[in-house]
């Protein structure tokens, strides 16, 4: 967009002082590109270092040369990180914790998305006395810092006999996600005409029939947005993970921390780097494959017809 506008301005001016302006315009354009490339390099640098370090042997790392490409590429650190790195007392690598995270994220995202969709639908299209206040309070939930709920949640989980269990973590994340998912769906459903609900009511459909037959089929764009948002948040969460898990139920972020911090003797940078990439990979993949739907879902939403 910006590019287009800039070009247009030049075209307009080019009648008056073409040469001088064209030079300055070009200079500005190239400096802009250079700046952008520098920023891009700066941002990609950590990932680059992580990837090359994870492919080096420890000897090669100790020779120095942080930015040097590996002389002998080795995948050994990746295998170690996956299946035999030591996190605390157990030395089984990340794989167990990776699946803990999957077991935790999938149901939590599903529950939060489904409840958010129903909430958004109800708050938008089945207004009742106080529905606006309930929505405002739910929105407030988006701004409650994690730290505030730690203690009450720990007590609650204890009372429900869910302390240290994956089920407990699922519950925590699902509840914490509901304000966000509700907001997403409510705002999306705002664009769906009220008459659609009226027509369905006259056709004899009830609350859930209208939701499942009419609203849900219209929702894929916002479902994708919600899933990406929730998946990323829950997968990357560390605080809830470390607070409410026990040995054996820790999510991958907590295990990564343990691996990096609990090595005795020589620090295996290559294994640490490989482990960090493995832990980050799912969210990266989600963005790469669903990113375009994310943008589309955020900008779209209106229903034609």
């Amino acid at each position: 967009m910006t590019n287009l506008t800039m070009t247009n301005i030049t075209v307009q001016y080019s009648g008056n002082k073409p040469k001088k302006l064209r030079f300055w315009h070009k200079a500005a354009r190239y400096s802009l590109y250079i700046l952008l490339i520098l920023f891009a390099l700066f941002y990609i640098m950590p990932l680059f270092v992580m990837v090359i370090t994870s492919l080096k042997s420890l000897d090669e790392i100790h020779q120095g040369g942080l930015l040097n490409l590996p002389e002998n590429i080795t995948f050994e650190p990746w295998f170690v990180a996956w299946s035999s790195a030591c996190a605390g007392v157990s030395c089984n690598g990340l794989k167990g914790f990776f699946f803990n995270s999957v077991l935790l994220v999938v149901p939590a995202v599903f529950i939060a998305t489904l409840i958010g969709a129903i909430n958004g639908y109800a708050l938008m299209h089945w207004r009742f006395k106080g529905s606006e206040i309930i929505f405002a309070l739910l929105l407030f939930g988006c701004f409650i810092p994690f730290q505030i709920v730690l203690l009450p949640m720990a007590i609650l989980l204890g009372k429900m006999h869910l302390s240290g269990s994956i089920t407990g973590l699922i519950m925590v994340h699902a509840i914490y996600g509901i304000p966000f998912t509700t907001m997403f769906f409510r705002n999306y459903y705002m664009t769906i005409p009220v008459e659609l609900v009226k027509a369905a009511k006259i056709d004899g459909a009830g609350f859930f029939r209208i939701f499942f037959s009419i609203f849900l089929p219209l929702s894929p764009p916002i479902i994708v947005v919600t899933i990406i948002w929730e998946f990323t948040n829950i997968w990357n969460d560390f605080l809830f993970g470390i607070s409410f898990s026990a040995a054996g139920t820790q999510p991958i972020t907590v295990a990564l921390n343990n691996i990096v911090n609990s090595t005795t003797g020589v620090k295996e940078y290559n294994v640490d780097m490989a482990a960090a990439i493995i832990a980050a990979l799912p969210t990266l993949l989600v963005y790469i494959f669903a990113g375009k739907y994310f943008i589309r879902g955020l900008s779209a939403g209106s229903v034609k017809g």
Partner: peptide, 28 residues
């Protein structure tokens, strides 16, 4: 509304966007 023995046509037509014409008509 469903038990009033009425049918209604709306200004925006309120056709169900994800259903084809046939399904729209027979949905009720």
């Amino acid at each position: 509304p469903k038990d009033r023995n009425i049918a209604m046509v709306f200004q925006s037509y309120a056709l169900y966007p994800t259903m084809n014409v046939e399904k729209n008509i027979t949905f009720g």
